[in-house]
Lab assay of single mutants.
Amino acid sequence: QLRFETNGEEQAKKVLEEAKKHNLEAHVTIENGKWVVHVK
């Protein structure tokens, strides 16, 4: 499982879109005010 700390909602959405293009499972959590994308 990969973990990407992003700078906010915009970047998190871009990472999610990329993951979906590659048929990867991804979800976002907010940790300590940071948007974190988890990709399987």
Score class of each variant (00 low, 15 high):
residue 1 Q to G: 14
residue 1 Q to D: 14
residue 1 Q to E: 14
residue 1 Q to F: 15
residue 1 Q to I: 15
residue 1 Q to A: 14
residue 1 Q to W: 15
residue 1 Q to V: 15
residue 1 Q to R: 05
residue 1 Q to K: 10
residue 1 Q to S: 14
residue 2 L to N: 09
residue 2 L to S: 08
residue 2 L to K: 07
residue 2 L to E: 06
residue 2 L to G: 10
residue 3 R to P: 03
residue 3 R to A: 06
residue 3 R to M: 08
residue 3 R to H: 09
residue 3 R to V: 11
residue 3 R to N: 05
residue 3 R to E: 05
residue 3 R to I: 11
residue 3 R to C: 08
residue 3 R to S: 08
residue 3 R to D: 05
residue 4 F to L: 09
residue 4 F to K: 02
residue 4 F to S: 03
residue 4 F to N: 02
residue 4 F to G: 02
residue 4 F to P: 02
residue 4 F to H: 04
residue 4 F to R: 00
residue 4 F to I: 15
residue 4 F to D: 03
residue 4 F to A: 03
residue 5 E to Y: 08
residue 5 E to I: 09
residue 5 E to C: 09
residue 5 E to N: 03
residue 5 E to R: 01
residue 5 E to T: 05
residue 5 E to P: 06
residue 5 E to G: 01
residue 5 E to M: 03
residue 5 E to W: 04
residue 6 T to K: 03
residue 6 T to V: 15
residue 6 T to Y: 14
residue 6 T to P: 04
residue 6 T to G: 04
residue 6 T to W: 04
residue 6 T to H: 04
residue 6 T to D: 04
residue 6 T to E: 05
residue 6 T to S: 06
residue 6 T to R: 03
residue 6 T to M: 13
residue 6 T to Q: 03
residue 6 T to N: 04
residue 7 N to Q: 13
residue 7 N to P: 09
residue 7 N to I: 11
residue 7 N to M: 12
residue 7 N to L: 11
residue 7 N to S: 14
residue 7 N to H: 11
residue 7 N to K: 11
residue 8 G to M: 11
residue 8 G to A: 10
residue 8 G to T: 15
residue 8 G to K: 10
residue 8 G to H: 13
residue 8 G to L: 10
residue 8 G to I: 12
residue 9 E to G: 04
residue 9 E to A: 11
residue 9 E to I: 11
residue 9 E to Y: 14
residue 9 E to Q: 10
residue 9 E to P: 15
residue 9 E to V: 08
residue 9 E to H: 09
residue 9 E to T: 04
residue 9 E to M: 10
residue 9 E to R: 08
residue 10 E to R: 05
residue 10 E to H: 08
residue 10 E to N: 08
residue 10 E to W: 09
residue 10 E to L: 09
residue 10 E to S: 09
residue 10 E to K: 07
residue 10 E to G: 06
residue 11 Q to S: 11
residue 11 Q to P: 04
residue 11 Q to C: 12
residue 11 Q to H: 13
residue 11 Q to G: 10
residue 11 Q to K: 05
residue 12 A to C: 06
residue 12 A to G: 02
residue 12 A to T: 04
residue 12 A to V: 06
residue 12 A to Q: 01
residue 12 A to S: 05
residue 12 A to E: 01
residue 13 K to Y: 14
residue 13 K to A: 12
residue 13 K to I: 13
residue 13 K to T: 11
residue 13 K to D: 06
residue 13 K to L: 15
residue 13 K to P: 00
residue 13 K to S: 10
residue 13 K to V: 09
residue 13 K to M: 15
residue 13 K to W: 12
residue 13 K to Q: 13
residue 13 K to F: 13
residue 14 K to A: 13
residue 14 K to G: 07
residue 14 K to Y: 13
residue 14 K to Q: 13
residue 14 K to S: 09
residue 15 V to T: 05
residue 15 V to K: 05
residue 15 V to R: 04
residue 15 V to P: 01
residue 15 V to G: 02
residue 15 V to D: 02
residue 15 V to I: 15
residue 15 V to H: 06
residue 15 V to W: 14
residue 15 V to F: 14
residue 15 V to Q: 06
residue 15 V to A: 07
residue 16 L to M: 13
residue 16 L to A: 08
residue 16 L to G: 01
residue 16 L to C: 07
residue 16 L to E: 04
residue 16 L to I: 13
residue 16 L to R: 02
residue 16 L to P: 00
residue 16 L to D: 01
residue 16 L to N: 01
residue 16 L to H: 03
residue 17 E to K: 10
residue 17 E to Y: 09
residue 17 E to T: 07
residue 17 E to L: 11
residue 17 E to M: 12
residue 17 E to N: 11
residue 17 E to R: 10
residue 18 E to G: 06
residue 18 E to D: 11
residue 18 E to H: 14
residue 18 E to I: 14
residue 18 E to R: 10
residue 18 E to M: 15
residue 19 A to E: 01
residue 19 A to K: 03
residue 19 A to Y: 10
residue 19 A to L: 15
residue 19 A to T: 04
residue 20 K to I: 13
residue 20 K to H: 12
residue 20 K to V: 11
residue 20 K to Q: 12
residue 20 K to A: 13
residue 20 K to W: 14
residue 20 K to R: 14
residue 20 K to N: 09
residue 20 K to P: 01
residue 21 K to P: 01
residue 21 K to S: 10
residue 21 K to A: 12
residue 21 K to H: 09
residue 21 K to N: 09
residue 21 K to G: 05
residue 21 K to D: 05
residue 22 H to A: 12
residue 22 H to M: 12
residue 22 H to D: 05
residue 22 H to Q: 12
residue 22 H to N: 12
residue 22 H to G: 05
residue 22 H to P: 00
residue 22 H to K: 10
residue 22 H to R: 09
residue 22 H to V: 06
residue 23 N to H: 13
residue 23 N to R: 08
residue 23 N to K: 11
residue 23 N to P: 01
residue 23 N to L: 06
residue 24 L to E: 02
residue 24 L to M: 12
residue 24 L to S: 03
residue 24 L to R: 07
residue 24 L to D: 02
residue 24 L to I: 07
residue 24 L to A: 05
residue 24 L to H: 06
residue 24 L to T: 03
residue 24 L to N: 03
residue 24 L to V: 06
residue 25 E to T: 11
residue 25 E to P: 07
residue 25 E to L: 11
residue 25 E to G: 04
residue 25 E to I: 14
residue 25 E to V: 12
residue 25 E to K: 09
residue 25 E to M: 11
residue 26 A to P: 02
residue 26 A to T: 07
residue 26 A to G: 06
residue 26 A to N: 02
residue 26 A to S: 05
residue 26 A to H: 03
residue 26 A to V: 10
residue 26 A to R: 00
residue 26 A to I: 05
residue 26 A to E: 01
residue 27 H to G: 03
residue 27 H to L: 08
residue 27 H to E: 10
residue 27 H to P: 00
residue 27 H to N: 08
residue 27 H to W: 15
residue 27 H to S: 12
residue 27 H to D: 06
residue 27 H to R: 07
residue 27 H to K: 08
residue 27 H to Q: 10
residue 28 V to E: 01
residue 28 V to G: 02
residue 28 V to T: 05
residue 28 V to K: 02
residue 28 V to R: 01
residue 28 V to A: 06
residue 28 V to M: 12
residue 28 V to P: 00
residue 29 T to H: 07
residue 29 T to K: 07
residue 29 T to M: 08
residue 29 T to I: 11
residue 29 T to S: 11
residue 29 T to R: 05
residue 29 T to N: 06
residue 29 T to Y: 08
residue 29 T to V: 13
residue 29 T to F: 07
residue 29 T to W: 06
residue 30 I to T: 06
residue 30 I to W: 11
residue 30 I to F: 14
residue 30 I to L: 11
residue 30 I to H: 11
residue 31 E to P: 00
residue 31 E to D: 07
residue 31 E to Q: 06
residue 31 E to W: 04
residue 31 E to V: 08
residue 31 E to L: 05
residue 31 E to A: 05
residue 31 E to G: 02
residue 31 E to F: 04
residue 32 N to H: 08
residue 32 N to G: 12
residue 32 N to E: 09
residue 32 N to W: 03
residue 32 N to Q: 08
residue 32 N to F: 06
residue 32 N to D: 13
residue 32 N to R: 03
residue 32 N to Y: 05
residue 32 N to L: 05
residue 32 N to A: 06
residue 32 N to M: 05
residue 32 N to S: 06
residue 33 G to W: 00
residue 33 G to S: 04
residue 33 G to Y: 01
residue 33 G to P: 00
residue 33 G to T: 02
residue 33 G to Q: 04
residue 33 G to A: 02
residue 33 G to K: 02
residue 33 G to V: 00
residue 33 G to N: 07
residue 34 K to T: 10
residue 34 K to A: 08
residue 34 K to H: 10
residue 34 K to F: 09
residue 34 K to N: 06
residue 34 K to L: 12
residue 34 K to S: 06
residue 34 K to D: 03
residue 35 W to R: 00
residue 35 W to A: 01
residue 35 W to P: 02
residue 35 W to D: 02
residue 35 W to H: 05
residue 35 W to K: 01
residue 35 W to S: 01
residue 36 V to E: 02
residue 36 V to L: 03
residue 36 V to H: 02
residue 36 V to K: 00
residue 36 V to F: 05
residue 36 V to T: 04
residue 36 V to Q: 02
residue 36 V to P: 01
residue 36 V to A: 01
residue 36 V to W: 04
residue 37 V to T: 02
residue 37 V to K: 00
residue 37 V to S: 02
residue 37 V to D: 02
residue 37 V to F: 00
residue 37 V to Q: 00
residue 37 V to M: 00
residue 37 V to R: 00
residue 37 V to G: 00
residue 37 V to N: 01
residue 38 H to K: 05
residue 38 H to F: 13
residue 38 H to L: 13
residue 38 H to C: 07
residue 38 H to P: 02
residue 38 H to V: 14
residue 38 H to W: 15
residue 38 H to T: 15
residue 38 H to Q: 05
residue 38 H to M: 11
residue 38 H to D: 05
residue 38 H to Y: 15
residue 38 H to R: 04
residue 38 H to S: 08
residue 39 V to K: 00
residue 39 V to F: 09
residue 39 V to A: 01
residue 39 V to P: 00
residue 39 V to N: 00
residue 39 V to R: 00
residue 39 V to Q: 00
residue 39 V to Y: 05
residue 39 V to I: 15
residue 39 V to H: 01
residue 39 V to G: 00
residue 40 K to A: 14
residue 40 K to E: 13
residue 40 K to R: 10
residue 40 K to V: 14
residue 40 K to H: 15
residue 40 K to S: 15
residue 40 K to T: 15
residue 40 K to D: 13
residue 40 K to P: 08
residue 40 K to Y: 15
residue 40 K to Q: 14
